[in-house]
Design a protein around this nucleic acid. Structure first.
Lengths: 178, 178
DNA sequence: GCTAGATACTTCGTACGCTAAAGGTTCTCC
DNA sequence: GGAGAACCTTTAGCGTACGAAGTATCTAGC
């Protein structure tokens, strides 16, 4: 059932499922965030700040994989809404630390969901052996991607799109049907 | 290695991997699209139009899970760039059908990559049994999410965020550590 | 045939995310 | 003390996204 006759599993089905889950997770995250007057990114930031006392803007940028200037804007709006406050660090006065306000903490506690909670609920319904398999495979995939990206960036190729290794990875030498 | 002592697999690791793959896939898609003067959404549209002779704007909207007014804008820009053309349907003159121009087709052929191609390459490197397992589990997950969403929407709950069933799914009754 | 309502799409207004480039402040290290 | 690095903000511009309102067209029901 999971394999095709010719012995190779149906990658397209896996990819399709992945794409679908990816698209739907965005929608759901957005819908949930909206209930609390937040955007998807803001919910993400809220949940990243919740467990820590404070976090620098750069650290946050890295966490949500966005540029500093993007995060500045997101934090501007969250500060305007009284959810978060900026505070200059005393150790290093270049650094801006972010903390949730009382309102922000209350909000974070009210949103009893991390962005991927729908999947968490579904994962918890999986047979245990499946969950174990999935964990093993997914973490393996993530590690491979991470290694690849790290390697790319260490090589100084800041523009991922023009990385020759990416081009190689993306080249359709296996001749998938067009 | 895949299970924790108490018998339940480590869902957090799976989720973390998923989130990571999700974020990275966005970045990579974007980077690849950029090489061809496209945005991520435009690449998606291109690849959706490539295999068909024409597609209505509504059908496309549904395909990429966006609203008509959003897609109108995306198509505006792609038409401006000479990649795609609009044509009123003859059967139903309300309908606008979309077709790739010669330039669009050439572009689609040049971008030998669907947005998830990085993952395809990685998946192809997986041991076959893993790929089979992953397919089974992922399609199962996707089916469950899809059923859930369909059911939600059939019930007339257009605002997903306020769907009581979602709220239930998202409720942290299992008491994850905050 | 004609009207009421549904459907397909566009337009408009608003907000957000994202980037590159340039600039201010502060730190570090020689 | 000075050069350069690190952290953050500002600015300008584009693309994405949505809801609400508007136009054109189709379909049912009378």
């Amino acid at each position: 059932m999971a394999s095709k006759k010719n012995g190779s599993p149906n990658l397209d089905a896996t990819l399709e499922a992945f794409v679908y889950l990816y698209a739907e997770s965005r929608r759901v995250t957005r819908a949930v965030a909206e209930q609390y007057g937040l955007t998807g990114s803001q919910l993400l930031v809220l949940k990243m700040l919740e467990p820590v006392s404070e976090l620098s803007l750069s650290a946050l940028s890295e966490g949500i994989r966005a540029k500093n200037s993007t995060v500045t804007g997101i934090i501007d709006r969250m500060e305007r809404d009284g959810v978060v406050v900026r505070k200059r660090s005393d150790e290093d006065r270049r650094v801006v630390n972010l903390t949730l306000t009382a309102k922000g903490k209350k909000l974070a506690a009210a949103v009893k969901v991390d962005p991927m909670h729908l999947f968490r609920a579904l994962l918890e319904d999986l047979p245990e052996s499946d969950a174990a398999e999935l964990e093993r495979i997914m973490t393996h995939l993530a590690r491979r991607v991470r290694d690849f990206i790290d390697e790319s960036e260490a090589g100084g190729a800041k523009d991922l799109g023009s990385d020759p290794r990416l081009a190689r990875l993306f080249a359709t030498e296996r001749g998938r049907t067009p």
